[in-house]
């Protein structure tokens, strides 16, 4: 139970950051926190009471935890890293064009500069 709450709280904190912060780098940090929360949640869904790592060893005969979520999380982590890298590149691009990474200022500049549409 505690693990679920902890993992979900991480997701919640990430969401809160995304919802309230204007700084794009902070938003990305929020997304990355939420990602870690999701990964922890997946892992805890696969937990078995008293289980050990799902790797066979000679002479060790204990129940094992669910290996599936661990494999899924491996994939999810890599995907998260990849997205973060790409998003960072776009933020650098934003900074190059607008000179700022504050989303509200960027939006204001877009509306003011282009003007053609709201």
């Amino acid at each position: 139970m505690m693990f679920y709450i902890a993992a979900l709280s991480l997701i919640g904190i990430g969401l809160y950051v995304v919802l309230t912060k204007k700084n794009l780098v902070k938003v990305l940090i929020g997304i990355s926190i939420a990602d870690s929360g999701v990964n922890l949640l997946l892992i805890s869904v696969g937990y078995l009471k008293g289980g050990t790592a799902p790797i066979l060893e000679k002479g060790l005969n204990k129940p094992m935890v669910d290996p599936v979520p661990q494999a899924l999380v491996l994939t999810a982590i890599v995907i998260g890293v990849a997205t973060l890298a790409l998003a960072m590149a776009v933020v650098i691009d934003v900074k190059r064009h607008f000179g700022t990474v504050e989303l509200d200022k960027v939006i204001k500049m877009m509306r003011g500069g282009d003007g053609s549409d709201a």
Binding site: L24, V90, D93, H97, F98, L103, I107, M110, G113, D114
Partner: peptide, 8 residues
Amino acid sequence: KGTAYATI
């Protein structure tokens, strides 16, 4: 400018 803004 526009693509960077839209993409983020």
